[in-house]
Write a protein that binds this DNA or RNA. Structure first.
Length: 112
DNA sequence: CCATTGACTTTAC
DNA sequence: AGTAAAGCCAATG
């Protein structure tokens, strides 16, 4: 199985700073995989724990959590975000906490 | 192969 | 602002 796409996705998500969030589509774009938002979710589900990929910083395009509200994993995500200052209210994160990366710096770090 | 399935997005009410 | 429908595309059976 070709994991290179997953690796790129994981590396991209690792660039999201604490206290910031990004959308699945945004990560796909930044990872050089436009149109593959759904693949990002898949990749996050398969991320090796030792990589410590901050999966909880990835939300839908409207900044809502992707999991069923009230579910255990949704709670974990909400808590994790709260712990770094992102206040999720009504299942939504504030617009002000959306990550806006410096593209030149990001591309340099990812070495694409 | 064809069909179904999503940690999704966009558009149109 | 919230919802529904359609579009999307790799993975899976």
């Amino acid at each position: 199985m070709d994991e290179s796409k997953y690796q790129r996705i994981w590396q991209t998500v690792l660039q999201i700073p604490a206290g910031k969030v990004a959308s699945y589509g945004q990560i796909a774009d930044l990872a050089g995989l436009p149109g593959r938002a759904r693949l990002v979710g898949k990749a996050l589900g398969k991320a090796p724990p030792e990589l410590e990929v901050p999966w909880f910083r990835v939300l839908r395009s409207n900044r809502s959590l992707a999991f069923t509200p009230g579910s255990e994993v949704a709670e974990l995500q909400r808590q994790s975000l709260l712990a770094e200052g992102v206040l999720v209210k009504n299942n939504r994160a504030p617009q002000q906490d959306v990550w806006q990366p410096d593209l030149a710096e990001l591309l340099f770090k990812l070495n694409y």
